[in-house]
Every structure is written in structure tokens, then in C-alpha cells.
Design a protein around this nucleic acid. Sequence first.
RNA 1: GAUCUAGUAGCUCAGCCGGUAGAGCACAUCCCUUUUAAGGAUGGGGUCCUGGGUUCGAAUCCCAGCUGGAUCACCA
Length: 577
Amino acid sequence: MNIELSDQEQYRRQSLTELRNLGIEPYPAALYPTNAFSTDIKSNFDENNPQRMEVCVAGRIMSRRIMGKASFVELQDAKGRIQIYITRDDINTEAQPEMYNTVFKKLLDIGDFIGIKGYVFRTQTGEISVHAKELTVLSKSLRPLPIVKYKDGVAYDAFDDPEQRYRQRYVDLVVNEGVKDIFLKRTKVYQSMREFFNTRGYVEVETPILQPIPGGAAARPFITHHNALDMPLYLRIADELYLKRLIVGGFEGVYEFSKNFRNEGMDRTHNPEFTAMEIYVAYKDYFWMMDFTEQMIEKICLDVNGTTEVQVGDKTISLKTPYKRISMIDAIKENTGIDIEGMDENDLRKVCEDLQIDVDETMGKGKLIDKLFGEKCEANYVQPTFITDYPLEMSPLCKRHRNNPELTERFELLVNGKELANAYSELNDPIDQLERFQEQLRLSEKGDDEAMFIDMDFVRALEYGMPPTSGMGIGMDRLVMLLTGQQAIQEVLLFPLMKPEKVQKVDTKEKFMELDIPEAWAEVLQKMGIKQVDQLKDLNPNKLHQDICGFNKKNKLALTNPSKEEVSQWIDNAAKK
RNA sequence: GAUCUAGUAGCUCAGCCGGUAGAGCACAUCCCUUUUAAGGAUGGGGUCCUGGGUUCGAAUCCCAGCUGGAUCACCA
């Protein structure tokens, strides 16, 4: 028996063998003809119909209540749970007379998949259940699931360690109520957004994830290497520049759900890979895009939640249109009382210092204003608000404001004090674009490691001419967080990035035995945590001798203790390896 | 990256001033035909995260590390 397995795992493996001995394959190949889901059975049940509803269901055993010759099983399928009533005389067959007492009661466990054919009825306590007439083993589970019980929506013994939940999301999905719902809603958000774009005739496209120049955003990229071309490649940080090339190419509107990768810190709102949606529409400006964005969000919220209100923590947020619109300068005035209109870099630095905001020499005018806004204003916009007209310097891909050359035609949509969407009237003047890129290069030389690279092909595309265009990007993960009331991005990503689990290498018993260690003692060493023969060579022979003799005594193994000389010979043998 | 905090049975957790490790669920054995966080009785199960140190003695105290979480920093 494998010493690495817990007793429960060993029992389950034993049951597996016994099932096979009884002629029952625990992992059958044939399809199982299910014709009903738990939730549908419950909602379609009609007590007054004298005709029994025959069903065939399949799922995982989540709990068992065994009462002698009769038992109740909670079966969980993709949509929910249904109770199964099983009696000995109903499921035993001539071919398998031990179906109830041995197979069901002894060899099946919580977590196993079974199929049930039977009819729907209501028990004396009123629960709609399936009366089993036939039980089929569909898949044996060798690891015990965490047992989570629910009563009146309260979870008992919830499986709630975030590390285990994210690493073993499959377990989280099986045992924790509501986790699957978040991901079903995530899919609905995508469906709803696609529908919104598709009905307007915009085209979903795919653009490169491996890029020679990571453009379209200010962020540190992941770098990788292409062997055949012997050149560096970057994982995309945004798809903006590619989508605009498509507008140059003559598409009216294009959009993409873009997996982006940014080599930055991780926390409850940042995962190294995340999904943004970006859309670009020709002949529009950012005013049009504000209308478009708020309509889109309202629609998605209604489709997903059936209401325009969402609850995030203790805040209720209304996503009903129209949303407040305020310029960045007015927002700063509104929150700090300071009018920064017309200030130069030095004035702004002084304002920041007066407000005790950390600033440094590498920050240009744009970054200073951004920082000022971020520190003093952003968190105050809980209800959806469009902040408009950002400083030129921090928006190198955005068109200059039609009335003020210091500003750009840009907005961000803030909800719950955080950026949700970002949009421009896109810069389509190729000469201005090149100058802005060059300004970014100067910032980069000044020490701003997020300043953008110059993408000359993108400039060349603009030189062929891009129609006036408005573009918008929205963080899909953040949107799903908002619509599901989650406070951590890890809760809306099926598999958030985690540091790799450390798995200790385990040498086989035989490897220990090669060192002239008797089999019984090899097992003892492994049980004591010496999993690899390499570990032996650094040990003190006296201490090891005492330890293993002590282990023998403590665990009443009744083994004959080896001599000190034998033990030190083991260690010598290990050192020679 | 910094600070704080946590890691004990398959799961959720107790375990104070250092003295042979506990509970509930799960599991095993036996009894029991309609129960529902569902029966009853009995029982098995632990590298107390890892490695050092202090001590006669460490799950407990100290140091370092690993892995989470929170806060901050960073961050379109």
C-alpha cells in the first residue's frame, strides 16, 4: 500500500479494485443516456399527473443518508442538485444482487459519479426526488472532496482557503455554491456585449498576441524569444495599434476581446494576464462613444442581472443611463478646490507637494495631473462618471481637444472609484502621432519605464490615412467584478496566476534498498520525511539511528533495530552515489 | 518591494503562562426502509508548513525560509 495516501484515499482505491472484482467497471466507456437535469426535474414536476415521469440523470454523489434498506443521495449535476431515493430491492438485480449492500453502501463514496434511472416523486417531507430503479457507476473518485453543507443559504465548513480554492478551482466549483454562477455570468457579459456590437454591424477580429513592439499602452511587457528568427518578442499589453490599422484598412468598426499581459505587481485587482475589450468605430468622436458606452453597460447589466443596480460591498451602484460627465480639470476643482487650468510643470509639482502627494523628477506635466487626480479624486466617483479631457502628455494616442490644444478628447469611465473604461477620439494625424511618440521616447530616457515604444509601422499606416475614429477599451475582468459584486479579480478568473506549488521529489523505495537498506526501514525513512536518498548523506548517523529506533518504538512497528554501524553504512552508501 | 497576519486530521477550526495533540463534518465497523447541515453506537486517522535556535522538555517562545491573506508602494 502506498504510504503517501491518506486512509480515506486508500479505502477508495480498495473499493475501486473490489468494484472490478464484482464485474463493475468504475470508469465505463459507454455513453450514459441522461435526459434530464436536476433543476428542470424540480421545476417541471406535476403532482397531479397520475402518470409517472421517468427520468435518467447523472452526477456526483454529494451526500448520503443511509437508513438500513433505504437511502437518500444528493446528486449534483451541471445545473444543481436533486435527491435520489434508493432502496435495496429496487436496485438489486439478478446479475448484481449486492448492488445495494456492497456496491452502493460500501464501495461508493461522496464524489463518485453515478447514473440513475427512475421516476420523479415527492417524499413525505416534501422534497421532489427521483425514486431509483437502476444505478450505474459512472466514475469513481479517489480523493475525498471537502464536505460543505448548506442550510438556508448558510454554508457550514465552507471550503474557503483562497489558495486552495484558486489552485484547485475544480474543487471550488464542485463544493462551493455560487462560484459557478460567477463564471456563468462572466459568459453572459461576453455574450451580451458581443450582441450589442454585432447588431450594430461591428466585426470581431483577432490580432497578434506575440508582438515585435508592445504598443498601445504604457506598461511593462513580458518578453520572450523566437528561436528560428532569433529575435525578442513581446506579449501584447494592448491591441489598440492593430485595431486602428484595421480602420485604416477600411473596416467600419472592429472589436476584440484581448488577453493582455503586463509584467507588473499582482494583487486583488491585478492579474498578470487579463482581458480587455477594445472597439474602434470610424467617423465617430468621443461624445458619441460616451453615449455608446453607457448604453452598452446598462444593457449588459440588465441582461446579466435583470436590473440596473449592483451591490458592491456596502455600496449600491446604479448603472442606469445617463452617467455624470465632468472634465478632469473640473473634477480636480470639485475635489480639491484648486484650479490647475493653465499651470506649468513647476506649479503642478508645487500643488502636489502642498497636498503631500509623492512626486519625483521624472514626472512630466501629464503624470503630475494624473497623480493628483488619482490621489485626490478618483476614489470619490462611486456612481458611474465620465471624466473627460485629459492632459495631452498622458495620452499619446489621443486626438487633441478641438477647443484646447493642451488637452485631449479622452474620457475614462469611473465606477466604484476605479477606472472601468477608457476612450478617445483617436489621433489620426500621422505627423502629430510621430511627435507624440518621440515625446514618449524623451520621457523614457528621463526614466519613465512605462513610456511607449515608437511603432513606425503604425505611423506609416496613419500616413495612408485613417478616418476620424473613436475607440474604447474596457477591462472585462473589472466589469465582471462589478456585475457580480466581487472584490477580487481572482474571483472572476477561473485560474488566476499562482506561484507554482512546491512538489517534493520522492525517490522509490527501491532506490533506498539499493543502499542496502532493508525494505521495512526504507519505508520508515520515507515516513519520517526522508523522501530522497540524497537527503541521507548529510545526516548525522547517531541522530538518524536514534530517530529511527525511536520511530520504531513509538509506532510499535516491532522491527529489529539496526545497529549504529549499519545505519552509518547506509549514509556512506548514499554519499558514494 | 515593505509592514502586519496565518499555516494543527481529507475539510472547517480549538489548543492561554512551554509539560505525551482536540472537536465537528468526512472516513471505518455494526444496527436501522422516507431522511434533509439528519439516524444510533463504537473506532481509526497527525512531518502541528520547513529548517535552525532557546530549554530537561517546543504545536506553543526566538530567528530564517516557503506558501497564502490583508494593508501600503507600484500600476492606464
